[in-house]
Simulated assay, not measured.
Amino acid sequence: MNEGTIEQLSRLDTSHKQQVVQLFVDGFYQHLSALTPDRRSLCNAFRDAFVSEQVYVYLLENRVLGMLAYSTQHSSALQLNRHALQQELGFFKGLMVSFTLGQKPIPIEAHQAYIEDVVTHQEARGKGIASQLIQHLIHTLPYTEYTLEVVDTNTKAVRLYEKLGFVLFKKKKQLLFQKQVGFNERFYMKKTVQRPVQEEEHPH
């Protein structure tokens, strides 16, 4: 596989943003299909949801093969349009999605970035794209701690995050609809990064 590049979504054009939404829907279709099995409606519902400054993509030959979004204490990666969600998913489902996805499952502190929506295109999995995106984010942003959520049944992702230095710090049981959602627990993992301390200038 040829080497691709990692780009901030805000620097790319509309076609790339459309590819990101498609990749997001395909990557989380197992969960999103409970809202509607219509992929087109799901894409329309999330068409303008991503804050492009907070999304990085892996680009190869003008194709988006991977994505990663992140949120901070003051800015979420998703800015959901409740009207668009309700138009595509119906009044109650749209309301539910805007509420649930609008809330972060754990608090985000000032020194943290919360990594979410890590997706690799099906044909490019196992090529290290997710690892490259996460490492790029950590090297690019100034935060000293990075947190994320992963479900217990996604053992490949858990192993990947452990390999990248993330450690488990919290578990949350899935109390309802375990069979439908396909997991029993949510794992919360974090990675601490040492940043060089900037020395204060003292007059001679």
Rank of each mutant, 00 (worst) to 15 (best):
M1I: 15
E3K: 11
I6T: 14
R11A: 13
T14L: 11
S15N: 12
Q18F: 07
Q18R: 11
Q22E: 13
Q22A: 15
F24K: 01
D26P: 06
G27F: 03
F28M: 12
F28C: 02
S33P: 01
A34Y: 05
L35E: 09
R39F: 04
R40N: 12
S41E: 08
C43S: 09
N44R: 10
A49T: 10
Q54M: 12
V55I: 06
Y56H: 15
E61N: 12
M67G: 07
M67W: 04
H74K: 14
S75H: 07
R82I: 04
R82C: 02
A84G: 06
Q87M: 08
L95F: 11
M96F: 15
S98N: 12
L101S: 08
K104W: 05
K104E: 14
K104L: 14
P107V: 02
E109S: 11
A110Y: 06
Y114F: 07
E123M: 07
R125A: 00
R125E: 01
K127V: 05
A130I: 06
S131H: 01
L133D: 00
H136E: 02
T140M: 04
Y143C: 00
Y146T: 03
Y146V: 05
L148C: 08
L148S: 02
V150T: 08
K156H: 06
K156A: 06
V158P: 00
E162H: 11
G165E: 09
K171W: 00
K172V: 15
K172S: 13
L176D: 06
L176G: 01
F177C: 14
V181G: 05
F183P: 01
N184D: 00
N184H: 02
E185H: 14
E185R: 13
R186S: 09
F187Y: 15
Y188C: 05
Y188N: 10
M189Q: 02
M189S: 05
R195A: 07
H204P: 10
